[in-house]
């Protein structure tokens, strides 16, 4: 009934040959999320913002963009994630010239429930300034694509809730990823540095 341990060990050792070096199954992914190279703005999915206006991701490219993905009915991680984003904004605001070049986005992973009204309520709740804050909701496939491109993992765990990784991503104006801050209440020093250098880039 049981496989000999030796067979399993052999299998484990032989496996990386099969999966090619960098995708070896026995290797744990690094802390860093698996981000794609290239521009996020090459994704052509359609979204709506908190005013119900139709937009594409490339519309976010007017500014260096700091984004998170979550869902508005989230009680646990998302409020903390948004708080982290607000903390970053607070720092950036100290530099007026910089602040004008930086935008923030909350992108919903729950297209079913996150209507423009829900996004608007979030805007009101946090007093987001519409010049700087774009809140997005789209469709299931657009969400999946963006999440994959950002290296974000998520899964619906109940009709109401999602499990998801907590990642703050800094996008350059061209949509390439400048930096990712992983986990809640993480040190934001590197994120701020990345925002500054992204703002200096053309």
């Amino acid at each position: 009934m049981k496989l000999p341990i030796l067979t399993l060990l052999t299998t484990l050792l032989a496996f990386p040959v099969l999966a090619e070096d960098r995708a070896a199954a026995t290797t744990l992914p690094a802390e860093k999320p698996a981000v794609a190279d290239g521009s996020i703005y090459d994704l052509t999915s359609e979204w709506h913002d908190q005013d119900g206006k139709k937009i594409t991701l490339s519309d976010l490219g007017d500014k260096v963009r700091v984004i998170v993905m979550g869902y508005t009915s989230c009680k646990y991680a998302c409020p903390r994630l948004i708080a982290d984003l607000v903390a970053i904004e607070t720092e950036v605001k100290n530099d007026t010239a910089l602040s004008a070049q930086v935008g923030y986005s909350f992108i919903s992973i729950d297209p079913e429930k996150d209507t423009p009204e829900k996004l608007k309520a979030l805007e009101t709740q946090y007093q987001f300034t519409p010049d700087h804050w774009k809140l997005l909701s789209g469709d299931e496939d657009g969400v999946l694509e963006l999440a994959v491109a950002l290296g974000m993992k998520y899964r619906k765990t109940s009709p109401l809730d999602f499990a998801h990784s907590n990642i703050i991503t800094v996008l350059r104006r061209d949509g390439s990823i400048a930096h990712q801050q992983v986990g809640l209440e993480a040190d934001k020093t590197d994120t701020l540095t990345a925002i500054r250098s992204a703002a200096e880039a053309p």
Binding site: E31, A77, K153, Y154, T157, D161, A163, S165, G183
Partner: peptide, 23 residues
């Protein structure tokens, strides 16, 4: 081996919202 649509869902669980669940 074959791609699946939601290959990026495999490492999270309902219990934990952190990023350390894979291990």
């Amino acid at each position: 081996w074959e791609w699946v649509r939601d290959f990026n869902n495999a490492t999270v669980t309902g219990e934990s919202r952190g990023d350390t669940t894979l291990e």
